[in-house]
């Protein structure tokens, strides 16, 4: 019975397009010569966006960990929640770039996926900062690979994207890595002999409180 009803509805839908309410403007065609990004470059950019999203989720998990009552490190929690928002902004910047180049007219839904972060606990602040540093190194390496696939294309060297990634993204990556590395080594020295106290003081420093 249901099948018959469906068939009738389907038939009606096919037969009646002339009198159907149109809710949207039909797509138009305009020249596409200006859309010049090549496939390999596009695919590696898409992967990079997914990687930034995954990093944002991993940082959320770090923020959540240090926010627990038994951990109680609000400074670290803030640092990592802020980092999560920053990674999300990186993903948005890369998306903006693709849009500027005439991309993302199709296959937008499959661009990214939200998956639960792999790691959920860290022994202490040093372990988390070291994890963050490794993660950032991975991101940097991946951006370099995007650059490679965008400039090595024999038919189209994508100078502009390469320049953008080199000038804006790598710049930010290297500065960010230096910042985390500095924090990690400072904290490690502090915790060398004064484990709990060192982490406590450093955490308050991250909050902007001098004690």
């Amino acid at each position: 019975m249901k099948a018959i009803l469906l068939a009738i509805v389907g038939l009606l839908a096919v037969c009646l397009p002339a009198s159907a309410t149109q809710c949207h403007v039909n797509p138009v065609n305009i020249p596409r010569e200006w859309v010049t990004m090549h496939r390999n470059c596009r695919m590696s950019m898409r992967q990079q966006i997914q990687m930034e999203v995954a990093a944002s989720l991993q940082y959320l998990a770090m923020g959540a960990h240090f926010s627990k009552d038994v951990i109680n490190r609000p400074g670290f929690s803030k640092l990592f929640f802020d980092a999560a928002s920053e990674e999300r902004e990186h993903a948005m910047k890369l998306i903006e770039y693709l849009l500027m180049r005439g991309e993302l007219t199709t296959d937008v839904t499959t661009l990214l996926q939200v998956r639960a972060p792999e790691r959920k606990t860290w022994e202490d602040g040093v372990a988390a900062l070291e994890h963050a540093l490794r993660m950032e190194s991975e991101v940097t390496k991946s951006i370099r690979n995007v650059i490679k696939s965008c400039e090595d294309d024999s038919e189209f060297n994508d100078y502009h994207l390469v320049d953008y990634l080199t000038g804006e993204f790598l710049e930010e990556q290297y500065k960010g890595q230096r910042d985390i590395a500095g924090k990690a080594s400072q904290l490690k020295k502090l915790m060398d002999r004064h484990n709990a106290l060192g982490e406590f003081i450093f955490d308050k420093k991250l909050l902007g409180i001098d004690i």
Binding site: V28, R88, M92, L99, E103, L104, T109, L112, V114
Partner: peptide, 15 residues
């Protein structure tokens, strides 16, 4: 993140 993709879609040169 779904809303982010919708925002992206409406910002392409065709839409």
């Amino acid at each position: 993140y779904e809303y982010l993709l919708s925002a992206a879609y409406f910002n392409n040169y065709q839409t």
